[in-house]
Write a protein that binds this DNA or RNA. Structure first.
Length: 588
RNA sequence: GGACCGGUAGUUCAGUUCUGGUUAGAACGCCGCCCUGUCACGGCGGAGGUCGCGGGUUCGAGCCCCGUCCGGUCCGCCA
């Protein structure tokens, strides 16, 4: 008898004498006959223990859930009427002749079956048990499959996989670095990479024209359901390439993954400019499954008496938008949404309820009606196509706040009103990002890393930075940014200029990436690339709500590992060796 | 740093506000006995609780108040 894997068993195995091992999923002890569901991976085989064989029957009686056992016997057809159609191996069973316990188990801290929902805190504490559940087994296998498809696709397109250091120098992405103290060079620190950005560009200079890596990245920022302190990127870079070429490659890669992992053929991805996306959705990562759009109504209110509308209508830096839904909401629902937009800095949420679209006097309901002229209301009704039962929300104020609050409201309403078709896939490219983001006070902050090439000429960047457009692109899927990249600057003069425009001094530039600026002087090919967030991609493919569900050992919102209790203290000796002293006062 | 939701048996929850009051319940799981064709087996019986933690109000607190810790969602942060 040889050891057989449960997943390979089927009716062809009938009559075979086999040995199988696995975990006990469930036991049904009928006193006379005992059924054991033996699990390996997420396949289950029914083992029958009959009382004639006294020795093993006694052992079988002592078996509990999640014991690891090994069983030998003959594969038999199940008696008529006892076939279980829900099981892949439901037509066969193993009639045991030998049975032994390889490892006992305490009762599980939570049930591993699908019938009781378990809180995430418990699951994360015992993640190794959580991972036994078939749902998690499936997810982790899908992730492996996706990684494998990515490798195959890129390698077959002549990309080569090159590893880059984990212990490196602080990188320029703009997030906080995780830091490793050096013992040999006391007082100095390595940083964990926020991405291999500079290394992949250096590899272009080295002449590796097509690079990729599936690589862990680290950012010491607060987490979200789609953000962990460590996450995985599919990092890609090519020399002598173009925006179009990189986008085509990225698009084909995603299409290939969907074909292989989900057997879905995605249509060509639409391309939208950043400004159009912001105009229509208030977001640079719109979920196109959501039919709601922001409608600009500035033109109606430029001359209005109602200052809340006319001020932003006249101001270049402001927006005035309407968002119409075909639902009548209660007062308390509207209050909740008002509170909701308040989180994004909106000072209020004006609304109009349409009870009768043919009577614009009595048929409308709103606290702001008394401030609006008949003409304004008529124009609104025409532009928004009022009909009975509609509710119209308004966002007015500084562009950034209106975009963020109304964009978020659009998403929330889409979710709350079930306007989103969860079975659909809505990928799109967003292009033509501004080089800078403009804050409410007019100040500029770089929106990309400083190695991104500008689409126009450098003069625009210098003279009118707020208008400068980056040669960059993001891939958005169902409202998540799953990838992004750009064409890079490939000469040191231009790079230095951009750094200075971004407000980075020559000294700082030389200290932080002098090595890179120098490298640009030794024959740098034009190059560009893209990086995908593997965790988010797999999360969407597996239809999960959080990347924690597609990471084998994730951390909590406070970046803590409930299983290992990391991070934790280190001894005084270790600290001394590293020449580090804590400034924390000991708690009493 | 901030807002909101949650923390009660091993697990998932009810009880908690409006209305504090004898012994804190259910389901699943666990333990024991019975049961020869079940498959979320069934039947009978049983054990199991610092109500996250600390303080306060009260004759009396799971419930009210204050603080704090943990988990989650979000803002800030993260191009």
């Amino acid at each position: 008898m040889t050891l057989i894997k449960i997943p390979t068993l089927d009716k062809d195995s009938l009559g075979q004498k086999i040995t199988v091992s696995g975990w006990v999923e469930n036991i049904r002890d009928h006193g006379g006959v005992i059924f054991i569901d033996l699990r390996e991976g997420n396949e289950i085989l029914q083992v029958v223990v009959e009382p004639q064989n006294k020795d093993i029957f006694e052992i079988a009686e002592s078996i509990r859930n999640e014991f690891v056992i090994t069983v030998s016997g003959e594969v038999k057809e199940r008696p008529k009427g006892t076939v279980n159609e829900k099981m892949i191996t439901g037509e066969i069973e193993l009639n045991s002749s030998e049975l032994s316990i390889l490892s006992k188990s305490k009762p599980m801290p939570f049930q591993l079956d699908e019938y009781v929902k378990v809180g995430e805190e418990t699951r994360l504490k015992y993640r190794y048990l959580d991972l036994r559940r078939s749902e998690m087994q499936e997810t982790i296998k899908t992730r492996s499959k996706v990684s494998n498809e990515i490798r195959q696709f890129l390698i077959s397109n002549d990309f080569i996989d090159i590893e880059t250091p984990m212990m490196t120098k602080a990188t320029p992405e703009g997030a906080r670095d995780f830091v490793i103290p050096s013992r040999v060079n006391q007082g100095s620190f390595y940083a964990l990479p926020q991405s291999p950005q500079l290394f992949k560009q250096l590899l272009m200079i080295s002449g590796f024209g097509k690079y990729f890596q599936i690589v862990r990245c680290f950012r010491d920022e607060d987490t979200r359901k789609d953000r962990q302190p460590e996450f995985t990127q599919v990092d890609i870079e090519s020399s002598f390439t173009s925006t179009e070429e990189v986008m085509t490659l990225g698009e084909n890669l995603i299409k290939e993954i969907f074909k292989k992992a989900l057997k879905i053929d995605l249509k060509d991805f639409p391309v939208m400019s950043y400004s159009e996306s912001i105009e229509r959705f208030g977001s640079d990562k719109p979920d196109l499954r959501n039919p709601l759009e922001l409608i600009d109504v500035k033109d109606i209110f430029t001359e209005s008496e109602f200052k809340v509308f006319s001020d932003p209508a006249k101001n270049r830096k402001s927006r005035l938008v309407a968002l119409k839904i075909s639902n009548s909401l209660s007062r308390s629902q509207i209050d909740d949404y008002t509170k909701f937009v308040g989180n994004y800095g909106a000072k209020g949420l004006a609304y109009i309820k349409v009870n009768d679209e043919n009577d614009l006097k009595e048929g409308l309901q709103s606290p702001i009606l008394k401030f609006l002229s008949e003409k304004e209301i008529a124009s609104l009704s025409e532009k928004l196509n009022f009909s009975a039962g509609d509710t119209v929300f308004f966002g007015a104020g500084h562009k950034k706040i209106v975009n963020e609050s109304m964009g978020a409201l659009r998403e929330k309403l889409g979710e709350d009103l079930h306007l989103i078709d969860k079975d659909k896939w809505a990928p799109l490219w967003i292009k033509d990002f501004p080089v800078f983001d403009e804050a409410e006070d007019g100040s500029l902050t770089p929106s990309h890393h400083p190695f991104t090439r500008t689409s126009g000429n450098l003069e625009t960047l210098e003279k009118n930075p707020a208008m400068a457009i980056a040669d960059a692109y993001d891939l958005v899927l169902n409202g998540y940014e799953i990838g992004g990249g750009s064409m890079r600057i490939h000469n040191s003069e231009e790079q230095r200029k951009v750094l200075s425009i971004l407000g980075i001094s020559k000294e700082e530039a030389d200290e932080k990436f002098g090595f890179f600026l120098e490298a640009l002087d030794y024959g740098c090919p034009p190059h560009g690339g893209i990086a995908f967030g593997l965790d988010r991609l797999v999360m969407l493919i597996c239809n999960k709500n959080s990347i924690r569900d597609v990471i084998a050992f994730p951390k909590t919102q406070s970046a803590y590992c409930l299983m290992t209790d990391a991070p934790s203290n280190i001894s005084d000796d270790e600290l001394k060796e590293l020449a580090i002293k804590s400034t924390l006062k000991p708690k009493d």
